[in-house]
């Protein structure tokens, strides 16, 4: 039963981590469009590379021009998508604060997670190998599922601390 529990725990952990990753790929919902919400999505085109909403450079004259363009369109009741496509049309894709999730740009969004998943797979295989090697040793040692009482915890702690004194850090 003990081992089953352990397997279950791992199985339960992995999907939740996966879900966390996938969630990050879903764009956040925008409820009420404000100028600030839109200017957070664009990069100031003066060359300062700051997000338009955060650009405080006095020398960026284009910042006010861009902000006014956003303001006009928000006041005209344009949707987020309309404003975005207007800006992309005017300044090119580089005006977007992050690359749109399509085409070649998907590589930058997906590769980190793909790499981490690949790494996790490698770790899984490696640990499995180590566990198989360890099982052979385990036969001779004590029961894996023994409960650790307070006294045992104390003894383990003392042992670990002693161990530290003689072997240095951990």
């Amino acid at each position: 039963m003990g081992r089953m529990f352990k397997v279950m725990r791992l199985n339960r952990l992995l999907p939740s981590v996966l879900v966390l990753f996938v969630l990050s790929l879903v764009p956040l919902q925008v409820y009420a469009l404000t100028v600030s919400e839109m200017t957070k999505q664009f990069i100031c085109q003066c060359g300062c590379t700051a997000v338009l909403d955060n650009c405080t450079h006095a020398e960026c004259s284009i910042r006010d021009e861009m902000t006014n363009l956003v303001r006009q369109r928000v006041e005209q009741g344009k949707t987020e998508a309309e404003i975005v496509s207007f800006f992309v049309g005017r300044y090119g894709e580089k005006v977007l604060a992050s690359p749109p999730k399509k085409g070649f740009n998907l590589t930058v969004w997906i590769t980190p997670f793909a790499a981490i998943l690949a790494g996790a797979a490698i770790i899984y295989i490696v640990i499995k190998k180590w566990v198989r090697r360890g099982r052979a040793v385990e036969m001779t040692t004590s029961d894996a599922d023994s409960t650790e009482h307070d006294e045992e915890y104390e003894i383990r702690l003392e042992k670990e601390l002693k161990d530290f004194e003689s072997r240095g850090f951990r």
Partner: peptide
């Protein structure tokens, strides 16, 4: 990525806070 994108597609892109927050937020939480 802006350099990679320009080399591959010839299109300039910007990679800013929305990207880093969305990708790294869950990684850091994990």
């Amino acid at each position: 990525f802006p350099i990679i994108s320009e080399a591959v597609r010839g299109v300039k892109t910007s990679v800013g806070p929305p990207f880093f927050n969305q990708v790294n937020g869950p990684i850091f939480l994990a």
